[in-house]
């Protein structure tokens, strides 16, 4: 009798812990399943809002997030994080490609970028979507803070050499960002690599079937 009694006492806390964990698990499961749809929508809407700001709205007629390529190209970009390319089409023809990528070279960690390149090879727009650069210095890569990123718009980059992709003070083509040379160089490097990738894989980028992780 004494044995079974102490056994019950010993099992009680374990059962209680299990019940609490199961109850909390159930609550979380309910929350996750009931918010899933809305969260997916929110993420998509936020992505779309960023993408549509890069291109004139009358230049394409498809929904950007549906025609995308997840590119895995080791050695082409600084890291092996997949780069996503969103393709804008007009009457079925690809008119622009927006690359979404991350460069680890920022002064304070990763910088997320969107780079829009026209099918004919000229740069349409460069936007920094996420960064942790110094407020007041490096954060001027945001369009809201300064028009530094505007200098990329309209550049025909196929003739650019590595030397052109430097800041003016290093003999290149681009305005500096006072007090934020590392940030500016990180953005330049990312744009250089992306346009280089575009020019070397143009045909594939225009013609590959959409979605799935692909290796050009």
């Amino acid at each position: 009798m004494a044995d079974s009694r102490s056994l019950t006492t010993r099992w009680q806390p374990i059962a209680a812990l299990g019940l609490v964990a199961a109850g909390m698990g159930l609550l979380i499961a309910i929350t996750v399943s009931s918010t899933e749809l809305r969260i997916t929508d929110q993420r998509l809407a936020a992505r779309m809002a960023q993408l549509t700001r890069l291109l004139p709205s009358d230049s394409y007629d498809n929904s950007l997030h549906q025609d995308r390529l997840a590119i895995r190209a080791p050695g082409q970009f600084q890291n092996d994080l997949p780069v996503t390319a969103y393709r804008a089409r007009l009457n079925g023809e690809v008119v622009s490609i927006i690359f979404s990528l991350t460069t680890p070279d920022g002064y304070n960690g990763n910088i997320d970028l969107l780079i829009a390149i026209h099918a004919d090879g000229h740069l349409q727009a460069v936007r920094v979507t996420r960064h942790q650069e110094t407020p007041g210095l490096g954060d001027r890569v945001e369009l809201e803070k300064s028009d530094w990123v505007q200098q990329f718009s309209g550049l025909a980059t196929s003739v650019f050499t590595h030397k052109d992709w430097q800041l003016r003070k290093h003999g290149g083509q681009f305005d500096q960002l006072t007090g934020a040379t590392i940030t500016a160089t990180a953005v330049l490097g990312a744009v250089e690599r992306t346009t280089g990738f575009f020019h070397s894989r143009r045909q594939w980028l225009l013609e590959a079937p959409s979605d799935n992780l692909q290796t050009p």
Partner: peptide, 16 residues
Amino acid sequence: IIIAGLVTIIERLMEA
């Protein structure tokens, strides 16, 4: 368990 669970729920609700 309670704290981690509640924060997970609040996080999901905020994201939504």
